[in-house]
Amino acid sequence: MEYNDTAGTVGEEIQTMSLKDPHPNYLKVFLTFAKNSLIRDMTFRTNFVLQCVSSVGWTLMNVGFYLILFQYTDTIGAESGWDRDKFFLFLATTWFINSIVQAFFMPNAEEFSELIRTGGLDFALLKPIDTQFLISFRKVDWSSLSNFGAGIVIAIISLHNLAHRENTPMIPGWHEIALYLIFVILGIVIMYSLMICLSATSVWLGRNQTLYNFWFYITNFSRYPMEMYDRGWGRPLYGIFTFIIPVLLVVNVPARILARPIDPRTTGEWFFVAWAFVAACGSVIFSRWIFHRALSSYRSASS
């Protein structure tokens, strides 16, 4: 995959904007980034379509796997309440969050370690804009959003099935939908913070290919209902991934709000909702701190 580097023109744009106004308009800058990425994607249109098709293909394969699984069982976990339609709502939530992370943050995090290795970070530091913003939003991988579309289709089908089933039909209320959206965003925030932390470590480690694998393996835990891990030797994992690296909350909290697997809700559930809010705020602050620590120990690699 080859494309022209439009970063130069973007830089100029930021500079001219900042000459007029010492505080850059972050939204405008972001829209410029997004536009440039879209132009780049549209230059290689066939490639773009193929990328969309292949990521949707991956989604379909996962759907196929879970459909097969539900041929054999009614729920995932005894008395957990995660039946087929509710679990597919869970999956849709996973896809919403993952596609956003992959579209907006993944390409940038990948580039960040490359910037450090090559010394290109110098140029980012010179720009009159917040460095973390510049590093995190420079590129948008539009093709990853195709999975967002796939998520919407899955969510609509499962909501339809839930509303029309014979015993205990379920239609989520407006406040549930609102809470769901808020916690999907907070989930994305947690994922983003985790990614910033991981990529910031490349300042110290130089190159961190293994860390990116680490990212995939950690987020792998977030893809299933969290109570699944709450037994035997899974308990330490459950604790770590809920309270220290809160990836288990990312999908679980919003998905539970919308799918309501256990009805009526337990107080434990509300505890996790509150905790997810605290965790999201905490992880943003923590990741920003780590990022600044990393920047202050950055020594240019070029020349």
Binding site: T73, I76, A78, M228
Partner: peptide, 24 residues
């Protein structure tokens, strides 16, 4: 070693599935 990590989630997923089947 890291490549075995996804198996950990698989173990829990399948345990949950078999747990549900057996309880039924």
């Amino acid at each position: 070693l890291m490549r075995f990590l996804p198996i950990v989630t698989q173990i829990f997923l399948w345990f949950a599935v078999f747990d549900a089947i057996e309880s039924k």
